[in-house]
Computed example of a mutant assay.
Amino acid sequence: MNGLITLELVRALRNRKFLFFSVIYPSLLFLLIAGSADGTTRIDGTGLTLPTYMMVSMASFGALTAVLMGNSERISKERAGGWVRQLRLTPLPGRGYVLAKTASAAVVSLPSIVVVFAVAAAVKGVRLDAWQWLALTGAIWAGSLVFAALGVALGYLATGDAVRPVTMITYFGLSILGGLWMPTTTFPGWLQEVARWVPTHAYAALGQAIEQSQAPRVQDIAVLVVSFVLFTGGAAWLYRKDTLKA
């Protein structure tokens, strides 16, 4: 399995388009949204300034891009090309393939988080304690595993030309409803209630709690844990279903 993880990492790092959208693009969006904002005015209902709020949002968005977009389309193409069928002829167990995909995607998501943090600190003067930077990096990186599992599930759910639109709808839906592009406090009241149960909202809320030196809400942790169980369970079921078809 270690060999497969290494192969996946090499393939991802060689894909310049993938690296741009997962590492550089979130930082550019951060500068576009927070570039002209001051560092004192706080967003209503959050206690955070726009730069600090959007730093966590864009770091989460970059990690989401890396693990969701990378996994789903790559797995679908590998199924169509017969690569997955060839792997089934090796001693590698099915769970090893899923774990390798999830682990490699999670590793690739780390640069996207660090780059956004570096840009926020250098350009917008975001300052946090050392423990907060470390805790933010760990929380956002660990939380990306939830969406890495979703990416695996989508890769087995959709095939051929269908995988890209299915992934894009999921990707943009999670980003917008989760408040990664704009604070959910700007949403209508009913939509704010819906957003509270979206995993990307809970994902970003972990980082926002750390920025405010607060403990994460139990609801946010519960949403992420339940989502991870559902996504990994769905990925495992779809993998077994695909195996029966082969």
Results as ranks from 00 to 15, higher is better:
Gly189Asp: 12
Pro111Phe: 06
Tyr97Asp: 10
Leu230Ile: 13
Ala195Tyr: 07
Leu92His: 07
Tyr53Val: 05
Arg164Gly: 14
Thr186Gly: 14
Ala106Phe: 10
Ser175Arg: 02
Thr52Gly: 09
Gln132Met: 13
Gly125Leu: 06
Ala12Glu: 13
Thr52Asn: 01
Leu31Lys: 04
Leu154Arg: 05
Leu230Val: 15
Val229Leu: 15
Pro165Cys: 12
Gly178Ile: 14
Glu8Ala: 14
Gly35Trp: 03
Pro26Tyr: 09
Gln212Trp: 09
Val10Asn: 05
Gly207Glu: 09
Asp220Gln: 08
Ala215Pro: 10
Pro26Ile: 08
Leu238Asn: 08
Ala80Phe: 11
Lys101Arg: 15
Gly82Arg: 01
Tyr25Gln: 04
Asp38Ala: 06
Gly234Asp: 03
Thr200Ile: 03
Ser22Val: 06
Gly160Ile: 02
Asp220Phe: 09
Glu73Thr: 15
Ala209Ser: 14
Pro183Arg: 04
Val198Trp: 02
Met58Trp: 03
Ser175Phe: 06
Ala204Ser: 13
Leu50Thr: 15
Lys124Ile: 00
Leu128Ala: 08
Ala106Val: 14
Leu174Ser: 04
Asp44Pro: 11
Phe231Trp: 01
His201Asn: 05
Gly138Arg: 03
Ala12Met: 15
Trp181Gln: 01
Gly3Ala: 12
Ala121Thr: 09
Val123Trp: 07
Arg217Asp: 12
Pro91Asn: 11
Ala59Val: 04
Pro91Asp: 11
Tyr156Gln: 02
Val152Phe: 08
Ala121His: 08
Ala122Cys: 03
Leu128Met: 13
Ser76Pro: 00
Pro165Lys: 11
